[in-house]
Amino acid sequence: MRWHPLVAIVLLLQVIPVWAFAGPSYPKLEYYVTDQVGVLTVNDIYDIEDLCLEVDNGTGCEIAVLIVNTTQPDGIDLFAVKTFEESGIGKEGLDNGLLLMISVSEKMWRIEVGYGLEGILPPIKVNQIAEDNLEPFLEEGNYYEGILYTVAFLGEEILDNWDGPVEKEKEPWYPIPFIPLLWWQLLIVVLIALAVFVVTGGRVLFFAGGLFKGGGGGFGGGRSGGSGARGRF
C-alpha cells in the first residue's frame, strides 16, 4: 500500500499525452486521405493515396484529402485554412501543399492551395477542375470517383508544371525500425516500464500503447493563405 502515490504518478504520466493533445479542434492530418465520415472504403483510400504518393515522389508536393461531417461553426473556408495550418501540408519553406476538403452534411467542398502552388493552380483552374470532376460525382453520392478524378487532374497539373526543388520528407531515424520512437523516447518508455514493473511487481505491462502515438508520419510544415476555390454539390 505504501507504493500508491508512485503508482498514481506513473498512471498520471500515461494520461498526460492524451490530455495535452486534446486542445486543438482542427484535425492534424497524418495521412494523404482522412475520411472521418466513412464514405470511402479502405481500397478507395488506397487508390487515392497512390495518386498522392505519385505526386509526392515526383515533385515533393503534398496533396491531402479530408472528409468531415460538418465544418460548423467555422465554415468551410476557415476550417480548411486552420486544418492546413495545423497539419502543415506541403514542405516547409516551399509551401507546396494542397488540401481537398469535403463536408458531407453541408454538401460543400473546398480546395485550399498552399502559397507555393498558387502560381500553378490559380482559383479559376482549381474551380474548373472541381466543377468538371468533383461536383458531378458528389451529386450522385459517388465520393470515390469524384475525389479520385479531381486528385488525378490536380496532380497532373502539379506534375506537369512544378519547377521548384523536389524535396523528400525528412524521416526521423528510429533505432528500432518497426517502433516509431526516437532514442530518448525509447529510453523514457524503458524507464517507465522498469518503474512500473518494480512498483507493481511485474503485473502491469500493458500501458505503453499511448506513447506510440505521434511518432512519424504527417506532413512537412507547409502553409497556405486562403487561395483556392469552393462550391456546393
Binding site: 473556408d77 485554412v81 490559380p122 482559383p123 479559376i124 474551380n127 497556405s224 493563405g225 486562403g226 487561395s227 483556392g228 476555390a229 469552393r230
Partner: peptide
C-alpha cells in the same frame, strides 16, 4: 463566373491574412 471565382478567392485570402 471565372472573375467571380477569382474575386471570391482573393476575398478569402484577404480574410485569412
Amino acid at each position: 463566373s471565372d472573375l467571380m471565382v477569382s474575386l471570391e478567392s482573393v476575398e478569402n485570402q484577404i480574410k485569412v491574412e
